[in-house]
Design a protein around this nucleic acid. Structure first.
Length: 289
RNA sequence: GGGUAGAUGCCCGAGUGGCUAAAGGGGGCAGACUGUAAAUCUGCUGGCUAACGCCUACGCUGGUUCGAAUCCAGCUCUGCCCA
């Protein structure tokens, strides 16, 4: 049997990816695979806007709630989780519908990892303890090319570039160039949909969703989740609700902070996906109430 | 009714005669980004203009001054206190 090609469904948060995924799954005899960094976790279903129990029952869904909140994950671990699942779906003659908004995670899936080392927690801690100027100086000495390409005010980027050099003993710039060359043509063979909505539409959908989340258990969810990895602490809504629970802010403030953070996240997603030229843009009907 | 504090750009807020289209923050807009990514970082943000530049702006009206968000007078509104 001819293996069925995956369909990717991308777009900013609250744009309606899950609904479209269900529709496409029905149409293409498919199964849905999560590509959302936080829907991977168990116990964060509400704040991560994971599909509801009813939705999960309509067609097979994969990689939702598969990690414990104490576990750390990155784009590489996601890729290693998703690849076999997708292959397995294909082997059964079904179409994988990969759905989610985590651009970097998706990119790992579609274009593969660069030949770079996984992050090293100890080294990172050591680098974090040093002043940025110091890291910039060392990176510039080890790999001037990489330094010239890196946003030197961005501590994360400088630190990672330096980490690569230190861990491999090679130049990060060369390793990255290899990958660049290797992945140049991959996009041509991908197919996917990018949901785009007008800003006012998207913003109103975000506001509506935040309201519903807070009204239907998000606060209780955060209250009961217990210890989480540093990863999960970054989930939008997590910090805000913690602050609400601690009495630091009131409910309307909490709601507005979550909305603002979500709007900003959505903007970054749009910027990211706009560069993925292989995606076919689709404009669902406006949903302003 | 009396007293008192205040009224600044989308919001908060600094500014007490020229260096002010007005600090800083938020929000918004745009962008970068292959292993922390729902993260991290960058630029812009009164209007018109490709640009030089022009115009409009610090509650309102008038005044002082070469020059006012900044000083003076009156008015309007808001908070607080006293009646």
């Amino acid at each position: 049997m001819m293996e069925r090609q995956s369909l990717y469904i991308c777009g900013p948060t609250a744009s309606g990816k899950s609904a479209l995924a269900l529709e496409m799954a029905r149409e293409l005899d498919g199964e849905i695979v999560n590509a959302d960094a936080f829907q991977l976790y168990r116990g964060l279903e509400i704040i991560s806007a994971a599909p509801s129990r009813e939705e999960l029952a309509i067609v097979p869904h994969h990689l939702y709630g598969v990690l414990d909140p104490t576990e750390a994950a990155d784009a590489g671990t996601y890729m290693r989780l998703a690849k076999p699942v997708i292959g397995e779906i294909q082997s059964r003659g079904k179409t994988p519908i990969v759905t989610g908004g985590s651009g970097l995670y998706l990119k790992f899936l579609t274009h593969g990892p660069a030949p770079l080392p996984t992050g090293d927690a100890e080294l990172r801690a050591a680098l974090d303890a040093r002043p940025l100027d110091d890291l910039v100086a060392e990176l510039t000495a080890l790999d001037p090319v990489e330094a010239s390409r890196t946003a030197l005010r961005n501590r994360r980027f400088v630190s990672r570039a330096l980490e690569i050099c230190l861990l491999t003993g090679r130049k990060a710039s060369e390793l990255r160039d290899q990958w660049e060359a290797k992945t140049r043509d991959i996009s041509a063979n991908l197919r996917g949909l990018l949901i785009q909505r007008d800003r006012p539409d998207l913003h109103s959908r975000i506001a509506r969703r935040t309201r519903i989340m807070l009204d239907s258990g998000a606060i209780e969810e955060v209250a009961s989740v217990g210890a989480v990895s540093r990863n999960c602490e970054k989930a939008i809504g997590f910090r805000e609700i913690r602050s609400l629970l601690a009495g630091g802010i009131d409910r309307p403030t909490c709601e507005e902070l979550i909305n603002a953070a979500t709007r900003q996240y959505a903007k970054r997603q749009e910027t990211w996906f706009r560069r993925e030229k292989w995606l076919t843009v689709c404009h669902p009907p406006t949903s302003i109430p």
